[in-house]
């Protein structure tokens, strides 16, 4: 039996399908730890403070040292970090950094692709902060707990 749909019915089915598929979006899961330079005295960090730091709105540590942020684009943890700490998707985070740049309001932080490079960056910068996979941590960096 041939089923025929008029344009209105077809459009309605398409809209319902799109909403049904879209509403069920689960947030990505992936283990990561927040790391700072090993010489940094900070041991914990509030999630909101971390959000402001990665959005370039908080630029110095409590002791006055300049914060050096690096974005870790390791796909295993990038989405998870973005949702958990920044409470936005990695795509929204990318747009935010581009807005800052093309509005003339600031320079976005550098990005690196691997945990190894990120650990090296944070280890070399006294005000460094980023996030890596738990098994990538070395003595050059210190893990700090994120307080919700």
């Amino acid at each position: 039996m041939m089923i025929t749909l008029n344009k209105r019915t077809g459009g309605l089915i398409l809209v319902i399908w799109l909403f049904a598929v879209g509403a069920g979006g689960a947030e990505p899961q992936g283990d990561f730890v927040m790391v700072v330079n090993a010489d940094n005295e900070v041991t914990t960090i509030n999630r909101k403070d971390a959000e402001l730091i990665f959005l370039n709105k908080q630029r110095s540590w409590p002791d006055g040292k300049n914060i050096s942020v690096v974005i870790n684009e390791n796909p295993k943890i990038y989405d998870s970090f973005s949702h958990t700490v920044l409470r936005r998707s990695s795509q929204q985070f990318l747009v935010f950094r581009k807005q800052m740049l093309f509005r003339g309001q600031g320079m976005p932080p550098p990005t690196l692709k691997t945990d190894k490079d990120v650990v090296a960056f944070v280890g070399e910068h006294v005000g460094g902060i980023s996030y890596v996979s738990p098994d990538a941590v070395t003595q050059a960096v210190k893990v700090v707990s994120i307080l919700q």
């Binding site: 747009v95 581009k98 807005q99 093309f102 509005r103 003339g104 309001q105």
Partner: peptide
Amino acid sequence: KVKMPMGLYNMERDSDFL
């Protein structure tokens, strides 16, 4: 010469991809 804020989008009007 600074971007003039007006609403959510005025500052990024020249950057289509934003």
